[in-house]
Design a protein around this nucleic acid. Structure first.
Lengths: 343, 343
DNA sequence: TTGAAAGCGCTAACAC
DNA sequence: GTGTTAGCGCTTTCAA
């Protein structure tokens, strides 16, 4: 099946460009990938030919020949969660203008699905991988450890990262929120949390530990649900909290949706915030500071995590081993606003 | 450079599987792609060999040989916008469990960037394309028209779609909101809008037209900004509206962020909603109905658009020409709540 | 139903 | 700095 003559519908190939420019195919290839090592004269001829033919490289052929792609895999547990949409934004800002592109995998808070996605991504020979947790299955973790590409774990700072990591101390962040509540004079704080993925569980544990140490722990005030977080859920959880422990005087919410929902529920019940009830939120998405009263929140560096992660990854791809700071703590910030400022 | 002996680190290939199973490579390929046309005996042997070797196909090689990939390109104007995160969710739900995967391109409300992304996606030989607007550059549009794969345009329903389309009548939706305001007895309605992309402009035009017809048009009450939409911006815009036209008695907001921001600003100024000021929102993300007072909104079928679009695309990919309903109107719904119910 | 041969369009490796 | 050669791991085509 000799198909020596090209059909007109076929797009031009490297060889076509080479012929047009009067050079060899490899020179065209080099002109595209590292213009620096090609003579000015050749480069100009090639560039001209590319323009004339409207040539675009075929990524599949390139991937096959070079055994690597320009794909960066990004694994997130949720697409609806505001937290990850901010991370996403940071990541996309960072790949803008590079030759890489991001592919998102949503594992819906399931470590098993995450493992499947890791496998799937790896089969595509990605240039790098960003994963949003430390809670892989053992197999998932092994796959990451032996991955033939750099890997960045994001969101948390913890011992035993697979390769690089960018995040902040989530437990210290919760503690800071709880402590702030204490410093404002609240003595009977509750904790509201939805979804209860491993990270949420850890944050709850940190809260309990702090509350216990401060002599403020009361399990009736810990309200959680495995269901997804939402504004409506925040209202429900507060309702439940107040029916179980009516003397509660503050709530630490495990994210902004919940805090906004709790605030609205308080409004509905004519409970004065911050007078009768203090509310501290977690993450601090834009909406939080515009509520009335404005929500005090532990602000987390979501976008920065995304942009930093991609920066590290790209540096490591371009120049393996060049990233010396392989574990980056971006910190968090207490945003003290009206919802906790008693008098 | 004869590398006849495979390095141990190399992953197994089709040929390895074929050898292991005692069949030819093409039989393995067929077993994977269309098990039906292979004999039971051969199939079993191949499946067993695949398992034993832990074989995973190389998508790059497959793409190169077959001249097509399993990538579905999804172009969105924004990643932070809640509207598109809902669409995204619908799309991802729809590809779950298929052999396709989605790649997102963010063109940041720039038709020029969109054109670049279309070009870029096309160079990857995608299985299909979903684009979020009708507002391509002429070149962008041409690229879509001649694309060698099915294309779905989403969000709007309009004449002259490139190929398939799924959405709703955005202009009728705005009109419905404005009319609702009128029916509630509001006579001096304003309009708040940010970002002002072509779609936002069209919606504003629809509002003006309706208001004019109803004898309620007053240009002082039309407040827009090219800046991105946010809750904070909603507050600013309402502030501006009230300083320019203090007798305004209602606002139609071009999306939920703005509406929430306007509501908070009203709260801050002790303006009674809905008594002194009616607020109607657009899109109706979850948060809207949990505000106090709950926001009346034009609910748009964002997730459904995503899942329907991917369903149509997959059907068309598997079976070109099989999709008969190539223009799907998913409608919208008025959610009448407290923020417009005077007495 | 199965197989052999011939590429898909690019890059690695080595020579010049 | 540039070219030649030999694949990368699949699928297509054609023949059996």
């Amino acid at each position: 099946m000799a198909r020596k003559t090209k059909t007109s519908s076929d797009r031009p190939t490297l060889v076509d460009v080479a012929r047009e420019a009067g050079v060899s195919a490899i020179t065209v290839s080099r002109t595209i990938r590292s213009p620096g090592i090609v003579s000015d004269k050749a480069r100009r001829k090639v560039e001209e030919a590319i323009r004339r033919l409207g040539y675009t490289p075929d990524p599949a052929a390139s991937a096959l020949a070079s055994r690597s792609t320009s794909t960066i895999g990004l694994l997130v547990p949720s697409l609806t969660n505001n937290v990850f949409s901010d991370v996403l934004r940071g990541v996309y800002e960072g790949v803008q203008g590079t030759r890489y592109f991001v592919q998102i995998g949503n594992y819906r808070y399931s470590a098993l699905e995450e493992e499947g996605l890791i496998r799937n991504f790896l089969s595509q020979r990605p240039a790098g991988l960003i994963v949003s947790s430390m809670d892989q299955t053992p197999t998932g973790r092994r796959l990451l450890e032996t991955a033939p590409c750099p890997v960045v774990q994001i969101m948390e700072i913890a011992e035993g990262a697979v390769d690089m990591s960018v995040g902040f101390d989530q437990l210290a962040a919760v503690r800071a929120g709880a402590q702030h509540l204490q410093e404002c004079g609240y003595r009977r704080p509750g904790f509201l949390s939805a979804r209860m993925d491993p990270r949420a569980q850890r944050r709850l544990a940190a809260f309990r530990e702090f509350a216990e140490g401060a002599g403020m722990l009361d399990d009736r005030r810990i309200i959680t649900t495995p269901q997804p977080s939402s504004v409506g859920m925040g209202g429900h959880l507060l309702e439940q909290l107040l029916s179980q422990a009516p003397d509660t005087d503050a709530v630490m919410c495990n994210n902004d949706d919940l805090a906004v929902g709790a605030l609205m529920e308080a409004l509905r019940r004519h409970i004065a915030v911050p007078g009768q009830l203090g509310i501290c939120s977690y993450n601090d998405i834009e909406m939080a500071r515009h509520m009335v009263p404005a929500l005090t929140a532990v602000a987390t560096p979501r976008r920065e995590i995304g942009s930093r992660a991609i920066a590290m990854l790209l540096a490591e791809i371009d120049n393996p081993g060049s990233v010396t700071e392989r574990r980056v703590d971006l910190g968090f910030e207490m945003m003290i606003r009206e919802s906790t400022s008693r008098r």
